[in-house]
């Protein structure tokens, strides 16, 4: 399976990555190589094998439903480029 440049451009857009015209060929080739490896793996018979959810063979530990965090808004908002009335400000997303 091979990818063309427009598919790479779409994937890059979904991931919000900028890929310049000069990089596009190289990235396309590299992803196509990875897909070739996946094609090879696809030929293995996996009937009766459960999909792998995690490489570690252990299960999730749970935590009790207890509030352990306190209000650190003031300290955390010093990290943000802009805030007002307790809200984090970001460039407007809806025009």
């Amino acid at each position: 399976m091979a990818l063309d440049k427009s598919e790479v451009a779409k994937i890059a857009h979904l991931a919000r990555l900028h890929i310049s015209e000069t990089e596009a060929d190289e990235v396309t080739n590299r992803i196509t190589d990875i897909l070739a490896l996946i094609d090879q793996m696809q030929s293995v018979d996996t009937d009766g094998v459960d999909p792998l959810a995690h490489p570690l063979d252990v299960v999730q530990r749970l935590r009790p439903d207890v509030v352990t965090e306190t209000d650190e808004r003031e300290r955390l908002q010093t990290l943000a480029p802009a805030s007002q009335d307790g809200l984090y400000l970001v460039p407007q997303v809806i025009e």
Binding site: R63, E69, L87
Partner: peptide, 23 residues
Amino acid sequence: TASKLFSGSATQFGAAPNTQANI
């Protein structure tokens, strides 16, 4: 629940903005 799905922040309705939003 009293706390969030994956963190120990409170989930009270109507709290002042970002006072229940931690790291």
